[in-house]
Nucleic acid binder design. Sequence first.
DNA 1: CGCGTCCTTGAACCGCGTCAAGCCAGGTGG
DNA 2: CCACCTGGCTTGACGCGGTTCAAGGACGCG
Lengths: 242, 242
Amino acid sequence: MNKKVSCRECNNEDCLIKRHCTPDYLAKIGLKRVQIEHQAKDSIFREGGYVGGIYFIQHGKVKIIAHGGDDREQIVRMATDGQIFGHRGLGDDLYTVSAFALSDTVVCFIDNDTMYDAYMHNPKLTYQMLEFYSLELQKAEVRMKYLAQMNVREKVAEALLLIRDVFGTHPADGTLNVCLSRQEIADMTGAMVEQVSRELGEFQKENLIAKTGRSGIVITNVNGMLELIKKYGTEQYATQPN
Amino acid sequence: MNKKVSCRECNNEDCLIKRHCTPDYLAKIGLKRVQIEHQAKDSIFREGGYVGGIYFIQHGKVKIIAHGGDDREQIVRMATDGQIFGHRGLGDDLYTVSAFALSDTVVCFIDNDTMYDAYMHNPKLTYQMLEFYSLELQKAEVRMKYLAQMNVREKVAEALLLIRDVFGTHPADGTLNVCLSRQEIADMTGAMVEQVSRELGEFQKENLIAKTGRSGIVITNVNGMLELIKKYGTEQYATQPN
DNA sequence: CGCGTCCTTGAACCGCGTCAAGCCAGGTGG
DNA sequence: CCACCTGGCTTGACGCGGTTCAAGGACGCG
């Protein structure tokens, strides 16, 4: 009973953020919020739209993408239950990225005024948000390095480990807890769909993954995947063999 | 007299952050701080070191790099007078990046306890830091897209515009206000030195830049450079012709 | 003046983007 | 229940862009 759990965002036992996504907690601290449901593939907000507040994921999976040239897209982040997204300044900003639901999703929206008020009255909350941003920034910087320096094979391996890290695996069969298309993996890596397909085929031959065309991917040899990209310093994915 | 200036970090007229780097202001709000001088090329902190606080640049230029595989490096950010760096969580974190002085530099170091105390007593400060982080995160996400999708020619163009944006140009002759080696430009783009050299040669032939081997680069046709990378959405570098 | 460092240029190789064709699974309608 | 269609996946061939290797040049410094 009363078991303590660490916040998945800041690793702090008494972090407020981990509780923000629960309606009860938000009500308790008096934050006005709106619950919104989205179906898989729906857009939640779009690049160029007005930033009216911040989103917490109550339940579901979300990808954040930046639009590039020639209709290409770049997935810059993915998030799931209990995590924050759409976090921007509270000024008159416009979104520089778009968010899409990867599965049926319920999000909690809190408007800027409400958040500002909460920040001004609860320094610990503001501070915990600061830690969350700091961590995200750190992840983004590491990701920059990967995108700039890895070859496609390595970037695909890294993408799979990242997916596993964010969404986890299905306990029954070990498939990744989210189903991304080849195009989406390409959008994570900055590569072309065909190349991603080829690299996945290679991984399968080498028994690093098991996969079927359209359904989930199983990483059968996590340590082997880690080995591929070790030299870039990928400690964040370090894990015990299943 | 009493001219209002906007904070270069958050564009807010009465932002505290823009004043943090001045010793007077730090003394006034009672923040204990340490001033540290560094010569060009000195390391200020290193990947793996303990994060004891946060740095403000009093005067000088700094690059933040992530170490990659095979002794490669990735420049993830550059900063100059009045800006913040080394901003990490206040936990028992270790740096995931290193910082080096690009010129003789004076930085202000404020330890974690002092910052935490300030955060708890000054919600506006915490909030302004939040906005700063938010902006940095936004820039990092855009940069990810560039690094993943641009070819080397485009990345070199983007790097030059970024350098110009961060450090500005010398009013007398228009040279960039910082002198980066070919290797450093390569470290910004994830490309090889030879290729950077070739692309710079091309730009020179096309009268986009004027350059000499070891000294500064002059961007002679900013709009031409912008044109090269327009399709990726590079509004942040939009500028009037000189 | 000689040495070290950085820059430049050339040539060869190969990773990967591009184009094109074919495959496979699921959905739809007859 | 099957035929067809559609959208995603796979595979092959080809060529370009960029890395790699190697040699030489320019510049600053002792």
